[in-house]
Design a protein around this nucleic acid. Sequence first.
DNA 1: TCATTACCTTGACTTAAGTCAAAAATGGGT
DNA 2: ACCCATTTTTGACTTAAGTCAAGGTAATGA
Lengths: 223, 223
Amino acid sequence: MKKILDIISRVPIFSGLLENQLQEIRKIAVDRYVDKGEIIFSEGDEGNGFFVITDGRIKIFKASIEGKEQILHILGPGEPFGQVAVFTGKPFPANAQAIAKSRLLFFPRTEFVDLISGNASLSLNMLAALSMRLQDFTVQVGDLSLKDAPGRLASYLLFMADEQGKGDYVTLNISKLQLAHLLGTIPETLSRTFSKMTEQDLIKVDGRTITLVNCPGLERLAE
Amino acid sequence: MKKILDIISRVPIFSGLLENQLQEIRKIAVDRYVDKGEIIFSEGDEGNGFFVITDGRIKIFKASIEGKEQILHILGPGEPFGQVAVFTGKPFPANAQAIAKSRLLFFPRTEFVDLISGNASLSLNMLAALSMRLQDFTVQVGDLSLKDAPGRLASYLLFMADEQGKGDYVTLNISKLQLAHLLGTIPETLSRTFSKMTEQDLIKVDGRTITLVNCPGLERLAE
DNA sequence: TCATTACCTTGACTTAAGTCAAAAATGGGT
DNA sequence: ACCCATTTTTGACTTAAGTCAAGGTAATGA
């Protein structure tokens, strides 16, 4: 069991802070464990604070009445979520659910806003974090509207290959059902897209391991 | 011709600041006029500052190679754009173009970051502005993926009716071509959707004036 | 180990929405 | 008031991707 202060000091949004500033943050942090499948908050809930993931994996998603869902983000250790509600003062605009057993730190809204007011580094880190998230959305909206399912899958695979940097193969860290919902499609279509791309010798699929056989071809698909 | 300081004092992201802080901001602001159709920045350009709209109207959009476009935001007086690149230090993730003759204030990156470091109110205003933008994206991604074209149009009309608050009619402030691109579709589909909704006595269309005849019906369409 | 559940794939069918083409309407600017 | 350019509409056609249904596979826990 790691010390909370140690964890906090390794979180990007708290980087570059002084020892006493980290201790201030530690004072307001609330430790919390959640099981796989547990809902952390739902769209419309009052946003009385935000979270940082210590361990595990969380999905942020929108759902329709008929049960369809669109994943907005898949987040892992070190990443914050729920900040938007903290700074807008409005309810959470989406749902958060653990897709693996996870450990979280919760930061209550008013205490955190007080902290940030007297801490320029923390402000700038937070501005950077929100801006990165906005940039991700920019890509997601563009992709959803301008690319077809194969194009979105190709983009995702190339992005992951780059991020994982383990040569030309990618290990999916989520189920294909979740991936379908992240890419704005359904598992049937995703499965057929994997098959088609395999036939065309663009990739090779073995469970959750995807080998990128023809990267230039994938880049062309992704436009 | 209004004084720049007057303009700045009325911009939401600069609200609640002291007189001398507003003067600091005024010192780094660069005044600029752009014509309708003029590109202000393109995706990939270096993000060396951000803009606030004094007058006019700006669209932020993604484009594909084949010429399709998806509008991310339509912005008007008082609204900032291009901040993401300021805080990520990365290039602009989308394009900005004037869709009307406009007047802008430009704030250079390094000067602005210096200002924000010593100004807690400005930080919090900026955090709030970015968070609102994130919330808008949340809605846009959900709608694009979970609603069909009539559902997205119904949502838009209801949103605008609420925003304009002028009873049950809406005046479009953009062309139907732009609206199609904002809703993630094409003008042909939008036109057919308007026709269908008129047949069903949900709305009445007269140029850019839309009367909402059956709001509950529209809400049902929008889910 | 077995059983139960969740996940993934495949096939046949349907449909929303895009494409292409052309006509009609609108609206500045001179 | 007229002309040119943009915007909007309409029609016929195509297609990507969703739905429904069923079978297969993998994974988890008692």
